[in-house]
Write a protein that binds this DNA or RNA. Structure first.
Lengths: 198, 198
DNA sequence: ACATACGTGTAGCGATCACTACAAGAAAGA
DNA sequence: TCTTTCTTGTAGTGATCGCTACACGTATGT
């Protein structure tokens, strides 16, 4: 009663997920067709649907995969940095390297993959927007802990400061897609770092 | 030999262009279908193609219309402000008002309408990217004039400063689409203003 | 060896995409 | 009035969209 009968999957789930990630990262959610996905993943539509459910479910599996791999520098920084200011500094500088990497699509998948969408797919864009806002809120909380600990002035608007850093990161992502180099982004990052005294 | 025979156009070009602008602004280039456009414009496909050529040509007519109307606060600020720093300050504060206006779609059409696109429409995204980069270069030139006039330190990296303001504006545009209010954006703007000493 | 269970490839589903052929209708010139 | 010239609405074009029915093949369990 332990094992299951049947043919068993013929392709590697993680490899297929990574291939789909690169396509979605480059062309966005609606800009990527199933034909493109199946070709990049090396499988046919029925295999894709069997393994991932639908284009939308595959996309959010891709988002999870992205957050756990290419985008995990964010979560690692959140876990390792002990103060809000050093966290902001590290996020900005590491984003500059990742967003303008020459071996992967430019920018951040969560920031760019579903900015404008068809009316029927608005909920997909909304879900990514919530992830962006959640990230800003997490930055604000880290800065609030700094404030409570006396590391930054007690009248600091930590929500506004986090939104400012978030805006800078989002702008860096777009400029990476627009052709900016890692050096270009680092110079932007340093302006933001100086602005908040980090 | 002066006048021309024929029926003459039955709809107003500018009204149709404005209606198309609101749809493209909201859903982006590829997220907007011809059915949506014709319904919003109150005309049928043949009239649209007769007047504007194609979906792509209509879109760039819309971009021109946008720059001449909703987005003209940028060109006006460029023309009226006498120093680079006051120009940056004005762009940031006015963008905060425009991007989070409650009577129009959020953000800036040039920034958000074609971030990720199908492979066949990459040239559309590239054209908007060039407009964004041209805008940053124009900001850099204004700041370089400031530097040459001695208003800002002689070792100022004006290109980097302009890229930083451009990134802030682009981030503000996305956060407006993500639900930020005019107040939220103004607080972001003030961080950037303080950062460059404007 | 046999039966069972699963994934896979082929081939095509209805819906929607951007776009257009065509004829009817309406205004201007003679 | 009659002809010319232009725009308009109807109705569709081929192509592509996301998705799936179904038979085949291949593996496992007994």
């Amino acid at each position: 009663m332990s094992g299951k009968a049947g043919q068993g999957r013929k392709f590697d789930l993680d490899e297929a997920l990574e291939a789909a990630t690169l396509v979605f990262w480059d062309h966005g959610y609606e800009g990527t067709s199933l034909a493109e996905l199946t070709q990049a993943m090396g499988i046919n539509p029925p295999s894709l649907y069997k393994a991932f459910g639908s284009k939308e479910e595959l996309f959010f599996s891709v988002v999870d995969h992205y957050n756990a791999t290419h985008g995990n520098f964010m979560a690692i920084a959140f876990a390792e940095e002990t103060t809000g200011l050093t966290l902001m500094r590290r996020l900005l500088l590491e984003a500059a390297e990742h967003y303008a990497s020459t071996t992967y699509p430019g920018g951040c998948l969560v920031i760019s993959a579903a900015v404008t969408v068809t009316a029927t797919n608005r909920h997909v864009a909304n879900r990514l927007a919530k992830m962006r806002n959640d990230n800003i809120n997490a930055m604000a909380e880290a800065l609030t802990r700094d404030r409570d600990a006396g590391h930054i002035p007690p009248d600091t608007d930590t929500k506004a400061m986090a939104a400012f850093i978030g805006a800078t990161l989002q702008g860096m992502s777009q400029q990476a897609r627009d052709g900016a180099t890692q050096d270009d982004l680092k110079r932007i990052a340093h302006y933001a770092i100086t602005a908040i005294g980090a």
